[in-house]
Design a binder for these strands. Structure first.
Length: 473
DNA sequence: TGCCAGTTGTG
DNA sequence: ACAACTGGC
C-alpha cells in the first residue's frame, strides 16, 4: 500500500471545523492532514489582549482537533520557511488555508503561494472569513462601494451559501511533525495582572460560539434593534470575539439571522445589517488598504490633530479618567473585559477625536492593544468613521455629547454605576475589579475622588467646531 | 447611529 | 411655557 502524501492545513484566523472550506478541502482526497498554526511576525505584532485571547483560542482548538483524532502543530518563524520545512519533513504535497484580507496578510500569503508553487507544491487559498469575496461585490460602474447603504442593498438580496458540515475526522499522518508547546509562546505575558479578571468574561471556542449564537437567535435577537443601543442591556450578540478568530463563520451567523427573520423576529434584519457592516469593513480594507494607517480622505492630513499619545488628556482617556462618566465607564469596561459596548465605542471615539482633537490612530492603537475582539477591518473603519476622515463617515461636526448620550442611553445610570467606583457608597464588584486590573504604575485607587472633566462637553465641542471651521480644506 | 440655537405654533 | 420643527456646524 502506498502512503498518500499529507496535506498541510495552515490554520490562521479560522479556529473551527464547521463551515470551514479549507478544512474540508484538506481532507477531501482522504490524504492525511497536518493542521499547523504558525507564530510569525503577524502574531508577534498583535496587541496584548488579542494575542492572549488567540492563545486561549489555540488551546481550545487543539483539544477540538484532538477529539477527532488530529492535532494542532505549533511552529514559530517566517511562514514560508516553516511551511517549506514542514513540507520537506512530512513529504506533504499540498498546503491549504483560509484567505485573509488585511494588507500584511495578503502580502505574506501572496509570497507564500508563489514560492510554494515554484517548489512544485499545490498551494490553495479558500474563502471562509467573509460572506462574499470583496472583489465580487461591485457597483454598476464596476467600482467598489464607498457608502454603506447601497452596499447593504446589494448584499441583502444576495444568496449566501449554506454553511458546510464539519469533517467527521481528519486522517492523521503516519508520524506527527514536532510541535512547540503553546506555553513557550507566552501569548499572555503582555496582559499581566488583568488577565484573570478579563478571563471571567470570555467564551472561547467553536462550541461556545455556536451556543452563544443559538441563545441569541432564540431570544435577544427579537429586541436587538432597540436593545442593542443600551449598554446596560444584554442586547447584543457578543459574537465579535468569536468572529474575530473564526470560531464561528459569518455564513453560520447570517443563516441564523435569516431564519429568525422568517420567524418574524423584529430585530433580525438589524442583526443582518451588522453582519453586513463587518463585511463592508473588509470590502473597504481590501479595496483601499491604506484605510488602516492613514486618513482615507487625504484632506484630513491638514487637520490640527493632537498626535502626542502621551498628552495628559490622552492618558486620562486610556485610563478611563476623563471625568466624563459615559466615556470612563466604557474605557474601564474595555480594560476589565476586553470588550466595549458598541454605543460606548462611538462615544469614546467621538470624545477622543473631537473633544480632545486627538488623531484617531491613537485610539485605533489602544483598541488594537486592549480588545479581545480586535479585527483589523472593523477597527480601521470604525475609527475613521468616528473621526470623519473615512468613506461614508459621520461628519466631523456631528459631535456626540457624552452627557446627553448618558441621559438617553443609560437613563437608569446602571452602566455607569457598574463601571465607576469613585464616590459610590457601595461600588459594584466590576467597578472595583478595574482597580485590580490596572497596572500599579497608573497609581489609581477606588478611594480617589472622581476626576473633574479634562475637557467638558461644551468646551470640547466648541474647540472642535472652531478647528473644523478654520480647517484648510 | 448628533447637537444646538433659533423660530414657529399652541395654549 | 413648551413642543415641534429647521438650518448650520
Amino acid at each position: 500500500m502506498v502512503e498518500l502524501s499529507p496535506v498541510i492545513w495552515w490554520v490562521r484566523r479560522d479556529l473551527r471545523l464547521s463551515d470551514n472550506p479549507a478544512a474540508l478541502a484538506a481532507c477531501a482526497g482522504g490524504r492525511p492532514v497536518i493542521p499547523v498554526f504558525i507564530h510569525d511576525d503577524g502574531v508577534a505584532r498583535l496587541g496584548a489582549a488579542p494575542k492572549w485571547r488567540l492563545g486561549l483560542g489555540l488551546e481550545c482548538f487543539a483539544s477540538t482537533l484532538a477529539r477527532i483524532g488530529s492535532r494542532l502543530v505549533l511552529r514559530r518563524g517566517d511562514a514560508l520557511e516553516v511551511l517549506r520545512a514542514l513540507v520537506a519533513q512530512s513529504g506533504a504535497g499540498a498546503v491549504v488555508w483560509t484567505r485573509a484580507y488585511d494588507p500584511d496578510s495578503v502580502a505574506r500569503d501572496t509570497r507564500v503561494k508563489t514560492a510554494l508553487k515554484q517548489d512544485g507544491i499545490e498551494a490553495r487559498s479558500l474563502a471562509g472569513h467573509l460572506l462574499f469575496e470583496p472583489w465580487t461585490v461591485a457597483t454598476g460602474q464596476g467600482a467598489f462601494y464607498k457608502v454603506y447603504t447601497p452596499f447593504w442593498k446589494v448584499v441583502r438580496t444576495r444568496e449566501v451559501p449554506e454553511p458546510c458540515a464539519a469533517p467527521r475526522a481528519l486522517p492523521a499522518p503516519a508520524t506527527w511533525p514536532e510541535s512547540d508547546m503553546l506555553d513557550s509562546w507566552q501569548m499572555g505575558t503582555a496582559m499581566r495582572k488583568g488577565a484573570e479578571i478579563v478571563a471571567t468574561h470570555l467564551r472561547v471556542g467553536e462550541e461556545a460560539a455556536q451556543a452563544r449564537l443559538d441563545e441569541f437567535a432564540a431570544s435577544a435577537i427579537a429586541d436587538y434593534a432597540t436593545a442593542r443601543d443600551f449598554p446596560a442591556c444584554n442586547g447584543t450578540s457578543r459574537l465579535s470575539e468569536n468572529l474575530a478568530y473564526g470560531e464561528i463563520s459569518p455564513r453560520t451567523c447570517w443563516h441564523a439571522g435569516l431564519r429568525a427573520m422568517h420567524e418574524g423576529k423584529a430585530g433580525a434584519e438589524t442583526f443582518l445589517k451588522e453582519l453586513a457592516w463587518r463585511e463592508f469593513a473588509y470590502h473597504l480594507l481590501w479595496h483601499s488598504p491604506h484605510i488602516a494607517t492613514s486618513n482615507w480622505r487625504p484632506e484630513w492630513d491638514a487637520f490640527p490633530w493632537n498626535t502626542d499619545e502621551n498628552a495628559p488628556e490622552v492618558i486620562a482617556w486610556r485610563q478611563g479618567r476623563t471625568g466624563m462618566e459615559f466615556v470612563d465607564a466604557a474605557m474601564r469596561e474595555l480594560f476589565v473585559t476586553g470588550t466595549m459596548h458598541n454605543r460606548g465605542r462611538m462615544i469614546v471615539a467621538s470624545y477622543l477625536t473631537k473633544h480632545l482633537m486627538t488623531h484617531w490612530r491613537i485610539g485605533l492603537d489602544w483598541f488594537a492593544d486592549t480588545l479581545i475582539d480586535w479585527d483589523p477591518a472593523a477597527n480601521a473603519m470604525g475609527w475613521q468613521w468616528s473621526a470623519g476622515s473615512g468613506p461614508d463617515a459621520t461628519p466631523y461636526f456631528r459631535v456626540f455629547n457624552p452627557v446627553t448620550q448618558l441621559a438617553r442611553f443609560d437613563p437608569g445610570r446602571r452602566y455607569v454605576d457598574t463601571w465607576i467606583a469613585e464616590g459610590r457608597r457601595r461600588p459594584s464588584r466590576k467597578a472595583l475589579s478595574y482597580f485590580e486590573a490596572v497596572p500599579p504604575s497608573w497609581g489609581l485607587s477606588a478611594q480617589d475622588a472622581y476626576p473633574a472633566p479634562v475637557v467638558t462637553a461644551e468646551a470640547g465641542r466648541k474647540r472642535a467646531l472652531e478647528a473644523y471651521q478654520a480647517r484648510k480644506f
